[in-house]
Write a protein that binds this DNA or RNA. Structure first.
Lengths: 168, 168
DNA sequence: AATATATTTCAATATTTATTGAAAATTCAA
DNA sequence: TTGAATTTTCAATAAATATTGAAATATATT
């Protein structure tokens, strides 16, 4: 396979993959493009390569910056802004975990803690099942939360170097 | 908080949560409703409780069954079908992991293995960055794959019982 | 300060995705 | 069988989400 074709394939698949995870197609594609670009590139480069509008590039690069996955780069002597993605996949992953934890898991656990305190008699079947479900999810969520904290702090080779060996 | 309000809150949040993960709102809400229902319930029950059409219930329950999260239940003497969700959150999670792995991670790894073999000289900066990126993701993906296999086979108390203690 | 260049915003529009509901198919009971 | 009850399908429609593009704003250059 030729490089041009492989690149197109990668960008397109990464975009499709992203949509399965609640990430908008274009944002994932821009990320993919930046991941395989050895040097920082401009808005216009992205517009041209992905055939999308300036506004779209602007919104989605901002979003990627918010997620801590992309940086604005100012090159000396250049008028335009450039964009560059973190290339280390381990760092990319821990960053995504960190953000999703903060944006979703933490608020969910807070809500479950509220719902757990629902009024009512545990002898009532409906009430019991509700409380059991909420507590079950909360317990699982807290455990996942702790595990993810460990992962975020861990070294790149944590999984292979330590975890998997431990389970051999 | 009253049970009725708490239930509504739970269903609605679970739906919103799902959309962040590429799961359609209604499917997540039906799942939530089934999780807190002590007994199996019918299409009509779901239609009524969530205020949605029969077709919608039908499609989304089928999807939940496909994911292995919900079962059709036939009650003796009853004409209608009933639905019931797996209540054990650990089982629910491992089932979701298993399915997403099969549907997304495995094909992605297969694709990356293809892209890795791209024609071209590694001395070319563009080619090198492409290969490095693809290999990086593939390596990370395979490790994640192995870790998830361990999780799927593990016991409910794996995280707290073993993993977290190990990292104390 | 005027001009050129670059970036951001956001209402309008297009696209994608979800939902409805009624017809068709299936299942069960008499 | 026949007919009633139930489930499924899917074209039409609605709702949600993403994208455009041009005007407004900001930034740099002369």
């Amino acid at each position: 396979m030729k490089l041009t074709e492989a690149k197109a394939q990668f960008i397109s698949s990464w975009g499709a993959f992203g949509t399965n995870w609640g990430i908008n197609r274009t944002m994932a594609q821009i990320h993919a493009l930046l991941l395989i670009s050895p040097n920082p590139i401009t808005q216009d480069d992205i517009m041209e390569q992905l055939n999308i509008s300036r506004g779209n590039v602007n919104m989605n690069t901002r979003e990627l910056i918010d997620w801590g996955l992309v940086d604005r780069v100012l090159l000396p002597g250049e008028r335009k802004e450039f964009f560059s993605a973190e290339k280390d996949i381990w760092k990319v992953s821990t960053q995504i975990i960190k953000e999703r934890k903060r944006r979703e898991l933490d608020p969910m656990l807070k809500l479950l803690a509220q719902l757990e305190k629902v009024e009512g008699d545990k002898k009532d079947k409906e009430t019991k099942q509700f409380i059991d479900t909420v507590q079950g999810i909360k317990k699982f969520g807290s455990q996942a939360d702790k595990m993810l904290d460990v992962m975020i702090k861990a070294e790149e080779n944590w999984i292979t170097g330590t975890l998997l060996k431990f389970f051999k």
